[in-house]
Each structure stands twice: as C-alpha cells, then as structure tokens.
C-alpha cells in the first residue's frame, strides 16, 4: 500500500464529482421518497417522514409496472444479444475497408441524439411510412399494422438503441480470439460448426455475459422507446417516474418508484450473473 498522498490528490476531482452529483443525489432520492406528497403547493411537504409512497408504489398497479418492466427488459436484452452476436461475427469476418465502414455504420447513429433515431423510427414504421406502404403495395399485409404506439414499436425502438453497444462489446471480445486458432482447429479436422461450438463460442462467453448484462440494465431503465414508440399500455417504471414527476408533480412518489427501479435493476443483474455463472459451471 502506497502511503504517498499523490493518488488521493489525483482521485480528488473525480471523487468530488461522484460524491456531489451521484452519491449525493441518490441519498437525496431516498430522503425525497420519504416526504409526504404535497397537495398542490410545492413538490413535497418539507420536514415530514412517511412510508406512504412505498405503499403506493408496491400495490397491485406498481407491481404490475415492475413485472412489465422486467418482461420488457428481458425481451429487449434477448433480442439485442440474439441479433448482436451474429452481427458481431459478421463484422469480424469482413475485410479491411468494409469492416471500418460497417463499424462506422454501427457507431454513427450512436453519436446522434436518441431523439433523432426515435423520430426516424416513428416515421419509418408509421402507417404512412415507407415500410408499411411497401408491404401493402406488395400485398404482404392486407391492412396497416400497428407498429407505432404498440409493444413491438417500443421493443424495436429499444433494440435499435441498445444493439450497437452489444455489437461493440462482443466485437471487442471476438477480436481477442486469434484467427489462427480457428485455422488450427480446422486444420486438425474440425468442421465449421465444431470450430464455432467448441472454440469461438466458449471463448466469447465473457463478452456475451457483459453484453447481456448491459442490455438488461439499459432495458430495465427503458424510457424513451416505450414513451415515444409504445402506447399507454407500454408503461415501464421509468415512464411512470417521468409521468408522476411531471404530469402530477408528485416528487415523493416518483422518488419511491426510482428507488424500486434501482433495487430491481440490481436484483435482475444479480440474478443474470448467478444464472450465467451456473451455466458456465456446467461446462
């Protein structure tokens, strides 16, 4: 252990920022969730302590929201990883200029605002949008589909937002596997399927675990996808927090919901890690 003050001095600016704008707000969140909700004036009644907010967020409606949020996150994470894995393999198999082009195609939308992507998606998937018009014109569908303001609209939106990160994380992990190992396995008589199942897949599992965890975490926090491409049915906890805080001005209730959300994100990630660990233990 180093006794010099240097590392502490170096870590101080970040420490101050983290304590002031992350730890502080999270503690304050807990405090706000214990205030009595105000009846119209201000956002809460100061100097009060109550557990009512937790009672209202863990009633049947609150638990249904939690259930929906978890189901939504699991769907989004499963789809993101199921689509992202082959995509990462595909990008990895590309030759030089194409690979950069593909990576830029994956990354560029992430540099733009989430709103841009969601706006484009709204227009693309809408009933007057080119996708539905094309499907109608070619006779694939007889009547317009309800893609915007629906479960699938919300899911597609979140997958589009999360998928690039999954491809990136898996790409980094796959990049650590030397192509010569696969060539060696093939030279020793393994088929393409065997090379994948016994070499590429096991070696990419750490990346798969990280990508799955990130996708679950962000899926649990889903806000803009359900809000802009989902309907009233697609209310995740984040959407409800936003509604309580801004449509009703009930900060204590929104804060209690936020505590519930934070706790369930931790629980979901913990469960995922345990399950993944069990899965790996079997190998």
């Amino acid at each position: 252990m180093n006794r010099s003050p240097t590392p502490y001095l170096l870590a101080t600016p970040a420490g101050v920022l983290l304590v002031g704008l992350l730890i502080g707000p999270l503690v304050l969140l807990l405090r706000v969730s214990l205030y009595e909700p105000s009846g119209g004036r201000g956002f809460f009644v100061p100097h009060t302590w109550t557990l009512t907010n937790y009672a209202t967020v863990t009633d049947a409606y609150g638990l249904r929201l939690l259930g929906f949020t978890v189901a939504f996150a699991v769907t989004v994470a499963t789809l993101s990883v199921a689509l992202g894995y082959p995509l990462a393999l595909f990008v990895r198999a590309m030759r030089s200029p194409w690979q950069q082009l593909a990576l830029a195609g994956v990354l560029l939308p992430k540099l733009a605002s989430l709103f841009v992507l969601l706006f484009g998606l709204q227009q693309l998937l809408g009933e007057a949008g080119p996708l539905q018009q094309f499907l109608l014109a070619t006779g694939v569908i007889a009547t317009p589909l309800r893609l915007v303001r629906s479960w699938w609209g919300a899911v597609v939106a979140e997958v589009v937002l999360i998928l690039p990160y999954v491809v990136l994380v898996l790409g980094v992990q796959l990049g650590r596997i030397e192509p010569t190992w696969e060539a060696a396995a093939r030279g020793l008589g393994a088929s393409s399927l065997q090379v994948f199942a016994r070499l590429t897949l096991p070696l990419s599992l750490p990346g798969l675990a990280l990508a799955g965890q990130l996708a679950l975490m962000w899926g649990m926090g889903a806000l803009l996808g359900p809000l802009l491409l989902g309907g009233p049915e697609q209310t995740t906890l984040s959407v409800e927090i936003h509604r309580q805080a801004f449509e009703y001005g009930r900060w204590p209730r929104a804060a209690a919901l936020a505590v519930l959300l934070a706790g369930s994100v931790g629980l979901v990630v913990f469960t995922f890690r345990s399950l993944f660990g069990l899965l790996l233990g079997k190998h």
Binding site: L22, G24, P25, L29, F43, S238, I241, W251, A258, A262
Partner: peptide
C-alpha cells in the same frame, strides 16, 4: 453509465 437515467434524474432534480 449503469444507473437508469430516470433514477439519476430524480436525484439530481431535488439536488
């Protein structure tokens, strides 16, 4: 990067 934006925002708002 891990805390849901809605959670962080509900802490930052009163702060």
């Amino acid at each position: 990067a891990c805390v849901p934006a809605a959670v962080l925002a509900m802490g930052l708002l009163p702060l």
